[in-house]
């Protein structure tokens, strides 16, 4: 088990600080580094509301102040995003890796269109305007999906 845990500080001012903090897992005590304390003091002095959350094993734990820079994990209030919430966010707000996977999906569809084109070309009995139009559609689909896949695979 790691002795470090990811912690996020968020304030109503819009300030957000993320980083690692030391955790004593036996007692459930997190010791925040100094830069968190600075943000907390600044929010307190400005009268802003704020929350400090620890992230562990997919769960979010609210941190409750104990003394100085020591905070307790509130295990009873831990929460985790449900499957449907995660699925919705994967579709509407994909992360970098997810966007790259979507790019690969577009390239797979592009390859399928090219294979479809070749299959159509070999199986058509004779050339006609209709056949040429459908071959053109296959090619256009492949080209468009290739470009879309390239944009999604940009990686930043």
């Amino acid at each position: 088990m790691s002795t470090l845990i990811k912690v996020t500080f968020s304030a109503t001012s819009g300030e957000e600080v993320s980083g690692k903090a030391q955790i004593d897992r036996a007692q459930g005590i997190v010791t925040l580094p100094a830069r968190f304390s600075i943000s907390i003091d600044r929010a307190r002095n400005a009268g802003e509301r704020f929350e400090i959350v620890a992230h562990d094993n997919g769960y979010k734990y609210p941190l409750v102040h104990q003394d100085a820079d020591r905070y307790a994990l509130e295990a009873a209030s831990r929460r985790r995003d449900g499957f449907w919430h995660q699925a919705w966010r994967a579709i509407t707000e994909p992360h970098k890796d997810q966007r790259q996977q979507y790019g690969r999906f577009a390239h797979t569809l592009s390859a399928a269109a090219m294979i479809g084109l070749a299959g159509y070309l070999k199986s058509m009995p004779a050339w006609s305007l209709h056949a040429a139009w459908e071959l053109f559609c296959f090619f256009l689909c492949g080209a468009v999906l290739f470009v879309v896949g390239a944009v999604l695979s940009k990686g930043d």
Binding site: P94, H95, L109, E134, V148
Partner: peptide, 30 residues
């Protein structure tokens, strides 16, 4: 008809993927 359906489907998939990509970049800034 098949060709038009193929183009419409491709357009819909492309538009959706590009929209999701732009949304993801805007939200996560990663």
């Amino acid at each position: 008809m098949f060709g038009v359906a193929l183009l419409v489907l491709t357009g819909a998939i492309s538009a959706f993927l590009l929209w999701a990509d732009r949304n993801g970049r805007r939200v996560h800034k990663d």
